[in-house]
Design a protein around this nucleic acid. Structure first.
Lengths: 110, 110
DNA sequence: GGACCATATATCGGGACCCGATATATGGTC
DNA sequence: GACCATATATCGGGTCCCGATATATGGTCC
């Protein structure tokens, strides 16, 4: 189930956002999150794998497939429908939070 | 100094946002944060006073004045110029983060 | 050949921070 | 008298971030 996580951490949000387009493996998520945020978000590996475990347990992400490239394993994660819903809800929440301040700025001259 | 806090917690953000209009005392901050977020943000007292201490130490908030009403003390906090800068930067950061997802939604049909 | 870096996974421990519980105190409502 | 809103403050548990560390491969540079 997990109908509504009231809150989502920033790392979790960017991991889900990175997976919206296509499944990615851990290292790919780190790079994509950096790209999407113009370099501002730098996911630490310790953050990533812990968050992926929690997301998997919560059903927002599933293991898509495993590949072996040059003897090194690559584990691809895919976002679930629940995950898509959750990350969109969070985006709305972020936008509303931003508006609390950006809205006030416009009126502050009064 | 504190030129740029790379990251800001949600509680910190809403505390600063609550103080943008006028100085408030602790309990007033909790109520105002709830109002500004349409009831979604419920600051716990333990969160508030810890965060206020950190914000004061960081120079984003200062003690404005103390009043005594009905024998009970009221401690008013005021946001500093650095605090205003920080909360506006954070609002921009939140908006940009939201756009990572909301922007993609529009293109997903392609 | 050796140093170093990018790629790729995983774990551990310290630290930051949220938050419920608890304590204390006053004044109003029922 | 019980209960709630107002108002402050602290403590402890739990969550989570993140740097450090470990392991392994292949490419570049000297």
């Amino acid at each position: 189930m997990v109908p509504s996580m009231t809150k989502m951490t920033e790392a979790t949000y960017f991991i889900l956002a990175a997976l919206l387009e296509a499944p990615l493996h851990g290292y790919g998520i780190i790079k994509r999150a950096g790209d999407q945020s113009a370099g501002r978000v730098k996911l630490a590996v310790g953050t990533l794998y812990g968050a992926l475990d929690r997301l998997t347990e919560a059903g927002l992400v599933v293991l898509d497939r495993e590949e072996v490239v040059d003897g090194r394993p690559r584990r691809y994660y895919r976002i679930t429908e629940d995950g898509v819903v959750a990350v969109r809800q969070e985006a709305v929440r972020l936008q509303q939070a931003a508006r609390v301040v950006t809205g006030q700025i416009a009126v502050m001259g009064a």
